[in-house]
Every structure is written in structure tokens, then in C-alpha cells.
């Protein structure tokens, strides 16, 4: 087999073909950030799946990223649940982002119960989105959340420290937030599409 065959011949003969990911159905859960929707394969959050948001610090726009989605979901029939948030959600501030606070359920749980409570909420099927701040979540725990989100048709958001970026994660989408020199979002993993090479700017408004 010394003869070198050009690849184009094989392609033309249909003996070799290029793999391509199945295009995802678009636009079910837009993030509310047009620039981010444009680079995400499903045109928004992966529906019924876990999205991981990795932060360097608190207060760098992590809620701003999800608040347009929460505002939209809080108009729907299903509840939005916050499991053990690190601070108190400020009612006036959330309302300035258009969130109906009557649809937001806050669950206080100890560190040991956070994953259990998150999984219960996701699995129940009566929550549109569940936000959690797990501190001791390993690969298996996140996989359980991913499965529960799929079973309950809910959006799951896990906010974690940026140090976890080097660990593999079963989340369908991983976003990393950057505060300096300006607020930007890196897509670090997205199921069903290629990773965008450039970060997406996150314009920060006060309200």
C-alpha cells in the first residue's frame, strides 16, 4: 500500500464521511443575553439539564447572568427554587430585574442536605429552575443532579468556585465568569456544539 490516495476521492466515493453533531432544537430556554444565546448550541440554556456557573468571587454578575431567565420563568406555572443561597436574595433588587418573588421558593438547608434538597426539587417536576450553591459536590453528586434535572424537566444551575474548572463535570454546560479586566463569560463546555473561542461580554447594568 504505497499509493497515496487523496482524501477527496474517498469523500466523493462516500467511503469516508465527516462526523457532525446533531443540531439541537433551538430557542427553548433563551438566557436573555443575545450574545450568549448566539454562541450556545441550543440557543440558550440546555433544557432539562445541569448548567454549571464557575466564579472567581461573589458579586461579579453571576445572578445577572440568570436573572432574565428567572424573570421569564417566574411568570410561568412552575416555581423557581433557591436551595441554600449564600446570601439573602434582596427582594427589591430581584424585582428590578423583573422577577415575581411570589414564585421564588427559598429552601434553607445545611451543607449535608443541600444536594438531597436540590435533587428532590429537580426530580419533583414542579420546579422550572433550581439554583444551588453546592460546596462539596463531586462528579457523582453533579451527575445525580443532571439525571434529576432530566427527569423533572427542570433547569438546574450550580454555582461553584472557579477552582473546580480543572475537574471534569457531567454538566451539559459550563460557564466561567471573569470580572477583570471586564465582565466576560467563557463557555468552557457545551454539549452538542463546538466551544466558542472568544468570551462573551456581559454588560453590567445596575438595574
Amino acid at each position: 500500500m504505497a499509493a497515496v490516495m487523496p482524501l477527496s476521492n474517498l469523500l466523493d466515493a462516500r467511503r469516508v464521511w465527516r462526523g457532525r453533531a446533531e443540531p439541537l432544537p433551538a430557542g427553548e430556554q433563551p438566557t436573555g443575553w443575545a450574545a450568549l444565546d448566539a454562541v450556545l448550541p441550543s440557543g440558550g440554556w440546555p433544557a432539562a439539564a445541569l448548567s454549571e456557573i464557575l466564579l472567581p468571587l461573589d458579586g461579579v454578575g453571576e445572578l445577572q447572568l440568570v436573572l432574565p431567565t428567572l424573570a421569564r420563568l417566574s411568570q410561568g406555572a412552575r416555581a423557581v427554587v433557591l436551595v441554600a443561597p449564600p446570601y439573602l436574595p434582596c427582594v427589591a433588587g430581584w424585582r428590578q430585574h423583573g422577577v415575581d418573588m411570589r414564585r421564588i421558593e427559598i429552601v434553607s438547608a445545611t451543607e449535608a442536605d443541600v444536594l438531597w434538597a436540590t435533587e428532590q426539587c429537580l426530580r419533583s417536576g414542579s420546579c422550572a429552575a433550581v439554583l444551588a450553591w453546592p460546596r462539596q459536590a463531586d462528579d457523582r453528586a453533579l451527575r445525580r443532579l443532571q439525571v434529576a434535572a432530566d427527569g423533572g424537566r427542570a433547569l438546574a444551575f450550580a454555582f461553584r468556585d472557579r477552582q473546580h474548572l480543572s475537574n471534569a463535570s457531567p454538566a451539559a454546560l459550563r460557564l466561567e465568569l471573569e470580572a477583570r479586566p471586564q465582565a466576560r463569560v467563557w463557555v468552557r463546555k457545551c454539549r452538542g456544539g463546538a466551544l466558542p473561542a472568544q468570551p462573551v461580554a456581559l454588560p453590567r447594568a445596575l438595574h
Binding site: 436574595p89 421558593e105 429552601v107 434553607s108 438547608a109 438531597w116 426539587c121 417536576g125 414542579s126 420546579c127
Partner: peptide, 25 residues
Amino acid sequence: ALPIEQLRERLRARLGDRAVHQLGS
């Protein structure tokens, strides 16, 4: 789907009576 009322009861049974709440201004 498990109704939200039943979900609340299930969480309350394990996490305590005041574990699930809403905030208003």
C-alpha cells in the same frame, strides 16, 4: 410531577418546619 405542595411538605419533613419560605417586601 410531584405537586409543589407535596414537595414543600417533603422538604419540611426533613429540613424542619421553617425550611421552605418566600420573601416579600
